[in-house]
Design a protein around this nucleic acid. Structure first.
Length: 281
DNA sequence: ATCGTAGCCTGGTAGC
DNA sequence: TGCTACCAGGCTACGA
């Protein structure tokens, strides 16, 4: 389940292995992985073949590589996307969707089991397709005070706001639950009722938990997420809330609970993160 | 404009 | 055993 730290690990891998290379051949094995490239797979291949890669960027969970003609190739890993660097004759992974032959004899592979992710060529760099995606908390230009003000103008649950990529990008279910646990906030707390200090504290925890995860190479639960060399991170050993149902809270010992939220799950400590009561929260 | 939700996907697992 | 139902969840499209 790649979130921002995992995507940044992949970006660094692309920086090391793909930037400076020319794409000598491109093959789309599954058209669904280029679903968001309007003109279709053959256009995708035509636009990329022969292009030189000049840089690798990331905003939130989106990755893009700059190309030598001013265009870019945008990538989202979705839930199960992987970017792998290997020899072209290495055994193909089970869900290989797109391959890029590089001019150093290596191959960049995009594999994706669930096909929530995908790639598309953008005419611009950075891609206008992600103009609506907010900066992420690890971006030097991220403005904490502006984020706090915008969030407090919303009228919604605090976790819903954290997951809104137009407000702050890169936060998914895992890091939202971890940051809320650190902040002792229930996911349904109304954004309008939160104090400035509470939201400032929250965004600080979001940044901290992401930075810590990045230091450990990202989080992995089911080996779906790996870096470009196929290795998993270790951050899942440091989680306090996400996936901890039935385990004692590391802070107070109460049993962590899992609750349905937005058609998925939220994990919280029932003592540290009590359910908001009507009105007063 | 803002908020909330259905649908996209596959495969591992639980339950019968 | 083989079948069905469920779960994981980021993002877009769309309705209210």
């Amino acid at each position: 389940m790649p979130e921002l730290p995992e995507v940044e690990v992949v970006r660094r891998g692309l920086d090391d292995h793909v930037v400076g290379r020319t794409l000598t051949a491109v093959e789309v094995l599954d058209a669904r992985s280029v679903r968001r490239h309007g003109p279709g797979p053959s256009d995708f291949v035509a636009r990329l073949t022969g292009r030189h890669v000049t840089a690798a960027h990331r905003r939130g969970k989106y990755l893009w590589m700059s190309l030598d003609d001013g265009s870019s190739v945008l990538t989202h890993l979705g839930m199960s996307g992987q970017a792998l660097i290997c020899d072209p004759d290495a055994p193909p992974p089970r869900h290989l969707r797109i391959t890029f032959d590089l001019d150093d004899g290596r191959q960049l592979r995009f594999a994706d089991q669930r096909i929530f992710g995908g790639m598309a060529v953008s005419e611009t760099d950075p891609p206008t397709e992600i103009a609506h995606i907010a900066l992420d908390p690890l971006d030097p230009d991220f403005d904490d005070a502006a984020f706090v003000a915008r969030l407090r103008r919303r009228q919604t649950g605090v976790k819903r706001a954290l997951l809104d990529q137009g407000l702050v990008s890169g936060v998914g279910n895992i890091y939202a639950d971890e940051a809320l646990w650190r902040s002792r906030l229930h996911y349904a707390r109304n954004t309008k009722g939160l104090r400035i200090a509470e939201v400032t504290d929250l965004i600080g925890h979001v940044r901290d938990v992401m930075a810590e995860a990045l230091e450990q190479g990202g989080t992995s639960f089911d080996a779906l997420y790996v870096n470009v060399n196929g290795q998993s991170g270790y951050f899942d050993r440091s989680l306090h809330a996400y996936g901890q149902e039935g385990r004692p809270c590391d802070r107070c010992g109460s049993i962590i609970v899992r609750e349905p939220f937005m058609n998925r799950s939220s994990y919280r400590c029932p003592t540290c993160q009590p359910r908001p009561r009507n009105g007063r929260w």
